[in-house]
Design a protein around this nucleic acid. Sequence first.
DNA 1: CGCTTGACGTACA
DNA 2: TTGTACGCCAAGC
Length: 112
Amino acid sequence: MSEREASDFFERVWGVVADIPLGRVTTYGHIAAYLGSKRAARTVGWALRAAAQSGLPCHRVVNRYGGLSGHAAFGGPHVMEDLLRSEGVTFVEGDDEVPCVDINQHLWVPGH
DNA sequence: CGCTTGACGTACA
DNA sequence: TTGTACGCCAAGC
C-alpha cells in the first residue's frame, strides 16, 4: 500500500520465496538470477533476513551447496533443519556436522 | 557522508 | 586444481 519499507529488489525476493512450494527448496543464486542479477545472491540473503521478520518461508532457501546458511536467523541452529525435514525434505550426509539439503532432489526454480 | 559488513556466487590467477 | 578477488544491493557504524 503506501508503506514501502523495502526496495523493489527486496519485494521481488519475497515474492519468489513466497512462491516456493512446500517440500521444495531454492538457492540464493537462482533467486538472484531470476531477478536479473545472478551475482546479487548476497542481496538476496539480506532480503531473506528481513523476510524472516516478514513471516516468509525463508527456511526453504539454501545456498548453492544445499547448506543451511541462515539458521541463526531462525532463533535456533536446528530450527531450519527441522522445518525442512517436517516438510519432507531429505538431507545429504555432509562431511561436517551440518547437514545439507538434497538440492538434487528438491531444488525448485522460480518461474517453473 | 563514507567505509565495512553481510543468509552467496562466479570469474580469474 | 585450488585460492583469491570481485560484484551485487542494502544496512550498520
